[in-house]
Design a protein around this nucleic acid. Sequence first.
RNA 1: AGGCACGUACGUCAAUGGUAGACGGCUUCCCUUACAAGGAAGAGGUUGGGGGUUCGAAUCCCUCCGUGCCUACCA
Length: 887
Amino acid sequence: MDIPKQYDPKQAEQHHYERWEKSGAFAPEINKDPNAPVFSIVIPPPNVTGSLHMGHALQHTLMDVMTRHKRMSGFRTLWLPGVDHAGISTQLVVSRALKKEGKTRHDLGREKFVERVWQWKHESGNQITLQMRREGASVDWSRERFTMDEDLSRAVREEFVRLYDEGWIYRGKRIVNWCPTDQTVLSDLEVEKLPQAGKLYYLKYPIKNSDRHVTVATTRPETMLGDTAVAVNPNDERYGDLKGQTVLLPLTDREIPVVFDEYVDPEFGTGVVKITPAHDPNDYEVGLRHDLPQVVVIDPQAKMTPEAGVAFAGLDRYQARERVVEEFERLGLLEKVVDYEFSISKCERCKTVIEPLISTQWFMKMDQLRDLALDLMAQSHKPRFVPESYERVYTNWLENLRDWTISRQLWWGHQIPAWYTKDGEVIVARSEAEARERAGTSDLTQDPDVLDTWFSSALWPFSTLGWPNETDDVKTFYPTSVLVTARDIIFLWVSRMVMMGMKFIGKEPFADVFVTGTVLDSQGQRMSKTKMNGVDPLEVFDKFGVDATRLTLAQVGSTDTRWNEKQVESYRNFANKIWNAARFSLLYSEPQMAIKETDLELRDRWIRSRLNRTAREVNAALEAYEFHAAVQTLYHFFWDDFCDWYIELVKADVTAEEDTPRRAEARSRLLSVLEQALRLLHPFMPYITEELWQRLPGAKQLHPAYQGAEPTIMLSAYPEGREELIDEAAEAEMAAIIDLISRVRNIRSEMNIKPGERVPVMIASPDPKLRAVFASAKDQISRLVRASEVSISENLEAPKASARAVLLGGAELAVPLEGLIDFEQERQRLNREQQKLQAEATKLEAQLGNPNFVERAPAERVNELRARIADIAQRSSQLRQTVENLQ
RNA sequence: AGGCACGUACGUCAAUGGUAGACGGCUUCCCUUACAAGGAAGAGGUUGGGGGUUCGAAUCCCUCCGUGCCUACCA
């Protein structure tokens, strides 16, 4: 048997994925059980422009852990992969590439440009899917989807037509967020607000037929050219006399009214606000309420229009700002300028300052859709958010929802299925043919705009399964089991999927929503491209292996965590530990694995109990999305129970020279435990577990649902943790032995006994059962504490020159150390020990001394406390005795 | 401005209201025949401060301090 001493992750990561994928093990069809329960997840489709970052790695790890766990538990399992066309991002990427050739998209024209994007998609858009293979993601590639696929595009048109026919989609002229660089409208969610140091300008507007003026405060003086009113709060007594007055708007020849509106905050600035309905969302509302004209002075390129006046037309908005301020100063109308910090809206993608503009766009009415989601939550508490606290975030947002701007002035995306006749009539249809039919003419022009990327993403949980066709996949896999996502797209995506799922299928798209935490950098900062502080998961894979990285990420779960490479290193070491435990087991393996499950020794009953207990805990933890607990449980079972104790306890038998049935049994049982442990670890560490499982001798069982499939650990049965195999007695007995060994080791260390030196060990207990337990493990005890001899008796008759200890269950221990013991040191050690006990006893007795506690706490707890005090008292008195006997 | 989280060992994080733990780091000793990416034994905490509820609080409530995140139309 040729197994290297160190685990090489790259070697294991090389072969298995391709074999898994080719064998069909990822597809739900592999499951031959017609009654198998179903588990399904759709992946949050990464942007086609994207490459794997830590957030993906985290989400994918969690989804893969769940998927592999369910698959091994016999579920018909589907994890559906796919990619999002990511309208703006992708258009920007390709435009940038064109720029290098000295061209713009307009040079190519729409058709050629879109062709070019597809070409780009085919060449470099699948980078992320290759990276997902590296992660070990057990997704069904045969069902991979792209939001621009013909099937999904058809679903989008279906969605649009139905919602339009019901009047939930409409076309209208409203004020919107406009990005002057990308030349498109953006939804509120695609705009980010950033604090900005700026100035507040106080401008004086003369009042007509008077030598008085009003002063308005503004951060954007250039918009004054489009003012059509000034407003004050109707309850503001300072300005009651402005009623009916007219203001002369400087730099123009326009006269504008004073209006009274609650919107104005008398506390802020001068209490007088200039109103620019065409360039400010609030002013727009005020304008509607007071029927004010909209004067457009800024165009889509953020340049001043002719309406701004000859002096300003054609100027950039910021140049215009300076110019306006200069003019006011010259006219003596600039009262003052103060520094002022405010938040500014920027395009999430290109960081250009958003210009609010009035524009004709397509909108989706959200009130009824919103109610579908809110009712679902109110009535059946779905979807269930984990952690729970996100439920309120979600419902609060829904309650304040406004109409959604769904059109975008882009070329890359789903073109809006609306056509216009020569007379300007709007025809909405599933296809141009249908539109012609509906219009009764073929002289139609399609709306040039495309839909917001999230319009198609909202259908993802069912459009990927074949909707609007009534496919088997929709019937089988919808609703999906769980959605795993980062919290920043709860609004953009999660809520919209719920609304569309309810609208079109009548069922929620997923039962649960698991919201992951964020992986921060080591300084606690969010990782971002601009900050250049991101940790590349692929580099971590290279350095420590995929499995170690997955364990680290699984631990993150739903809490924010700072990236800590030491953690990965520690799991890399864990992988190595697994490797070497298997190496030992395989070194002594035999081709025939006959496992006898009767006449088991204590150590075998113990490890079987520990294993089943571990399985139960891990299953329960995964069911509850407690990934951290699952990882901890597995780690400690494998390292502490299996490696530190079980392997050490069986080592003598396993490595025996003589070929006896006892040796064969020990070897096969060791392999059996290892095999089950590998299965338990597999969802978290797919590569190393498969690599080792394949090397195990003999035939290995698959889960009954996968009979006949190519053997792989990923189709073996996940250990359920059988209650009847949990053996409390065996665990208690082993605990006594472990305690004994630890005590002897402690004495050896404290007394500075050389590791090579053997010492006699004397154990005494009045309990014959306990003596029998120690007796049965005598050889192993002797080996693990390096004893020259082990004696077990009813009463301790040890020489004075012995180090002593009191064990669990009241057994006594003596290690005769003639010539090695320092009495003073030993007395101090025992006294320290006794003091510890005493301190604990004092604390507990105080609690018991409280009559309220005895009266009000549950009897069970009171009894427990009494038992503990009794135990401590006994050990304490035994220790005291020992100290007294010391000389 | 509101809302929501979070603050536990040197670091990163755990702990249904019931004995505060893990991993890394640190100290001492060991290259013992699976593994030095290992083994053995240790040290280290008034759970951010203060108050309250409770028999009992890291956990629930209030408050202050600190740190994040989200939402929002204060020109």
